[in-house]
Nucleic acid binder design. Structure first.
Length: 289
DNA sequence: CTCCAGGTCCAGA
DNA sequence: TCTGGACATGGA
């Protein structure tokens, strides 16, 4: 087995936060090394100062795609400089300087977030792991490492029965995933075309899928299609915005959306991810239980 | 046992 | 537009 390596430089970069902040579900961390999958590449990555050391078992690695995935070319400070200067965002920015949005694959991202609804992140990871093991293509893995597989294609999942999907523990989301797989594989939904589409159009287009509402559509537009104005509002962000910016009043969905769009612009999506990671790592207060 | 999770859908105000 | 409840599943 041949392992090929490459060093990518990017500063600032916070690899640990980037891979654990809930945007991607397939990375596991051992010591200071993360192992995961990008398309059909088995990937091992670690950070040393301003560089990422990336290794893969792929016979002819697509390094351009890998660089793109990790978004090492982005001028991150230019992005975070545009954040509003309030104390919460300033603190999040300080604590997680180097946190980046990845550029994920459209189908994997869409399918993953269809599975994410009303589920905790560890559960989502569990389901996705089972889905890849059952229906993905096994990848070459160095000795001593867990077997990993590529994410199953839309075409393959379209050929799988809902009952077989349910066996993986995804519950009522099975028909949603199934329908998305059919529409993507038969061309009724051309994911690639969303790259060219303006945000509002792309936003509406994704929501024609059953099981895809505003939150999931925004996640997919932000994490796969790099629409920077997408601002996913989940339970955590809703709580955070209510406490931090509405002094615990309970704003309506419409109010939240309007506030987020104007206040965090132009990099609302990035601001959202900093806030999300920040509140989720708070020791106590906004956290339930 | 009860409550909740990176929500969405549907029905009824 | 907004609200309440249902929806599968698993962990706390």
């Amino acid at each position: 087995m041949v392992i090929q390596s490459q060093k990518l430089s990017a500063s600032p970069y916070d690899l640990a936060s980037t891979l654990t902040c809930g945007q991607a579900f397939r990375w596991t961390r051992w010591d200071h090394t993360s192992v995961g999958v990008i398309d059909d590449h088995w990937i091992q990555v670690s950070q040393q100062g301003p560089s990422l050391h990336v290794s893969t078992t792929h016979s002819s690695p697509n390094w351009k795609r890998i660089e793109d995935y990790f978004q090492v070319r982005l001028d991150l400070d230019n992005v975070t400089r545009s954040f509003p200067m309030d104390s919460h965002l300033r603190e999040a920015k300080r604590a997680y300087r180097g946190l980046r949005l990845l550029k994920q694959s459209p189908w994997e991202c869409l399918a993953s977030f269809i599975l994410s609804s009303n589920k905790q992140i560890p559960h989502i990871q569990q389901i996705i792991t089972r889905l890849t093991q059952r229906f993905g293509t096994p990848l070459e893995v160095p000795p001593g490492h867990e077997p990993l597989a590529s994410f199953p294609t839309a075409a393959h999942l379209a050929s799988v029965s809902e009952a077989d999907l349910r066996k993986l523990g995804m519950g009522y989301r099975a028909p949603f995933l199934s329908e998305a797989a059919r529409r993507v594989s038969d061309g009724r939904l051309v994911l690639q075309s969303l790259f060219e589409m303006p945000y509002p159009e792309a936003f509406a287009s994704l929501q024609t899928l059953p099981g895809v509402g505003p939150k999931i559509a925004n996640c997919v537009l932000l994490f796969a299609f790099q629409k920077q104005e997408a601002f996913p509002i989940d339970v955590w962000i809703k709580r955070a915005l209510s406490t931090l910016y509405f002094s615990d009043a309970s704003p309506s969905p419409k109010q939240l959306e309007a506030f987020a769009r104007s206040y965090f612009n132009p990099y609302a999506g990035y601001a959202q991810q900093y806030l999300f990671h920040y509140v989720r790592n708070q020791p106590r207060s906004p956290q339930p239980h």
